[in-house]
């Protein structure tokens, strides 16, 4: 039975991130979570596995803290979990991440479809899916808002700036999905309990025989302040104020 893989990332919960007055970032009290859009990628993989009669698998790449993600990921439906574990993940760039994921996908071998989210909720770099596709030499379809699978053909609707493009590809393929692809359900009691019993494979990164040196080094992460214009329209009648506001917004190109 072939595998349908959902790649997901364990990220720092942005709700807990604090930006200090000196704009340095404090993640000391932050907990991890599955990147929000990845929940849709997981659900897409589970649905596709049902259609294809395959097995859905949640695949992640990360440091020791990523172990916590597996129970949550598996409670969302995948039949199996797989974790590429390495301390190197913290400084990995998109190239390294894609190399690791692609190597794991090759190791799993019988794979017919790989799902990623369009971007991660921390960096939103939108590189993982295209890079995996390039390494595997598989077709890549990005920005997918709707998809159909028939036999070994996948038809996807891509949401572009101002139009919808429908494309067809033969499997195996790599697909990155937009959140509107599905409603990722909140796991129920039985799903949460079942998650603890599902098989999880841990792949030690060194087994994959890839070079973990990133091509991009992150030298600094800091917060930024938006300079606000602080214009207050307080004079005159309400109707005039609205007109004035509309004029300002037009000038700014908002309207």
């Amino acid at each position: 039975m072939s595998y349908i893989i959902a790649c997901y990332k364990w990220v720092v919960d942005e709700a807990d991130i604090r930006i200090n007055p000196d704009l340095s970032i404090d993640t000391k009290k932050s907990k991890g979570k599955i990147s929000d859009y990845d929940k849709n990628a997981i659900e897409a993989a589970v649905q596709a596995a049902n259609i294809l009669g395959g097995k859905s698998l949640g695949l992640t790449f990360g440091g020791p803290e990523t172990r916590l993600s597996l129970k949550d990921a598996l409670s969302r439906g995948p039949a199996e979990g797989c974790w590429i574990s390495t301390g190197e993940a913290a400084k990995a760039d998109a190239a390294v991440t894609a190399k690791a994921l692609a190597a794991a996908i090759q190791k799993i071998s019988d794979v017919s479809l790989v799902f990623c989210a369009e971007g991660a909720s921390d960096t939103y770099a939108r590189q993982t899916a295209p890079r995996i596709g390039a390494i595997l030499d598989w077709p890549v379809v990005t920005s997918v808002s709707k998809l159909d699978i028939e036999g070994s053909t996948l038809t996807a609707v891509r949401k572009l700036d101002d139009c919808l493009q429908t494309v067809k590809v033969d499997l195996p393929a790599v697909v990155s999905v937009l959140p509107e692809i599905n409603d990722a359900p909140i796991p129920g009691l039985k799903a949460v309990l079942a998650a603890g019993k599902k098989p999880v494979t841990e792949i030690k990164a060194e087994e994959l025989g890839i070079d973990f040196s990133p091509k991009t080094d992150v030298t600094e992460i800091k917060g930024y302040l938006m300079n606000r214009k602080n214009i207050i329209l307080s004079e005159g009648e309400a109707a005039d104020k609205v007109k004035e506001l509309a004029a300002y917004l037009r000038k700014e190109g908002v309207l």
């Binding site: 909140i186 796991p187 129920g188 009691l189 949460v192 309990l193 603890g196």
Partner: peptide, 11 residues
């Protein structure tokens, strides 16, 4: 949990 109890959160 370490003692063997199961925990289901968010339910």
């Amino acid at each position: 949990e370490e003692m063997g109890a199961m925990l289901a959160c968010g339910i």
